[in-house]
Design a protein around this nucleic acid. Structure first.
Length: 296
DNA sequence: ATCCAGGATGTAT
DNA sequence: ATACATCATGGA
């Protein structure tokens, strides 16, 4: 295992590993000390997290201003991309209008960054997220990885990669349902088939934001909200604002002028208010509201 | 027991 | 285009 430490405290806006990987924007990192995701506290200030990407294991933890890592490869380029370490948080917060709610969220989770997840895992995790609590989404992804992901053994530990499109495309629907995916099982299978067959891959998704969101809804189980999650958490469209139940409620209560009849109209209104980094504000507010309510 | 969770789909209007 | 029932599962 190679090891290293990235002095993230020196980056504009800093970095908060726990908030970044436990805020419900990515479901691809597992905390080594067990299942505390989505909870109100979490005692995980210096916990290790791990993921598998491109067949490589990456473990990270945060200790006083440093992002420590150990990996089967040089993790720095991966971490820089996956955690968007080059985003200038100070600049982003400066150009994003901060009212009382957004400002409170920024303050509470200073250093939280958006992630940039790999496309297919992000797509499937958010298909699974429909009508599901955050903690259960983590469990579903872990079950999928253990059942269908390639195993990587390092230092006596076994890690599981996220399943490939080919593997999920050929999995019997009944098996997927056994993993407690519920009615999303056929969505996952059919979407995996679209990707595995080459019929609709990430290369077919337009680069422009709204066009990308529309194209993503051609996958099965992907509506406007899930498409926005993929736009924001994988494709780097930082203006995307997924309108889930929490954010809809916040818009209704705090920004009634943006509360329009249709998804796309509300989306446009909220983006006009918060600008090209509206997705950052969305993710902070989502985490802030859900965390303070501490439902799961 | 009843309601709800980071919603989407199929069908009827 | 819009309205509605339906879809699993677990936790409050």
């Amino acid at each position: 295992m190679e090891t290293g430490a990235i002095p993230v405290g020196e980056f504009p806006g800093g970095f908060d590993l726990q908030a970044t990987v436990e805020s419900g924007q990515t479901y691809l990192w597992e905390r080594a000390d067990g299942e505390a995701y989505g909870g109100n506290d979490c005692y995980g200030g210096e916990a290790w997290y791990h993921t598998v990407i491109d067949g490589e294991v990456i473990r990270v933890r945060q200790t006083d201003g440093c992002l420590e890592w150990e990996s089967t490869t040089d993790a720095v380029p991966y971490l820089t991309r996956l955690f968007r370490l080059e985003d200038d948080l100070d600049e982003i917060m400066e150009v994003t209008p901060a009212d009382a709610l957004v400002d409170a969220a920024y303050t509470a989770y200073a250093g939280m960054r958006l992630v940039q997840d790999p496309f297919f895992p992000c797509l499937v995790t958010f298909i699974c997220s429909a009508q599901m609590r955050v903690r259960r989404i983590f469990r579903m992804q872990r079950a999928l990885a253990q059942e269908y992901g390639d195993a990587v053994a390092v230092n006596g530990e076994t890690y599981y990669a996220y399943p490939t499109p080919e593997r999920l495309a050929t999995a019997p629907e009944a098996e997927l349902r056994d993993l407690k995916i519920g009615y999303r099982a056929p969505y996952v299978k059919q979407t995996a088939q679209l990707v595995a067959s080459g019929e609709l891959t990430v290369n077919d998704i337009p680069t422009e934001y709204e066009a990308a969101r529309d194209a993503l809804t051609e996958y099965v189980g992907v509506g406007e909200k899930v498409a926005d999650c993929v736009c924001l958490f994988s494709l780097g469209h930082l203006e995307a604002v997924p309108l889930d139940t929490w954010i809809r409620r916040a818009i209704h209560d705090y920004y009634p002028d943006c509360d329009k009849e249709t998804y796309s109209a509300t989306s446009r209104a909220i983006r006009e208010q918060f600008g090209s980094f509206a997705g950052y504000a969305q993710t902070y507010v989502f985490h802030y509201l859900r965390h303070n309510d501490s439902v799961d």
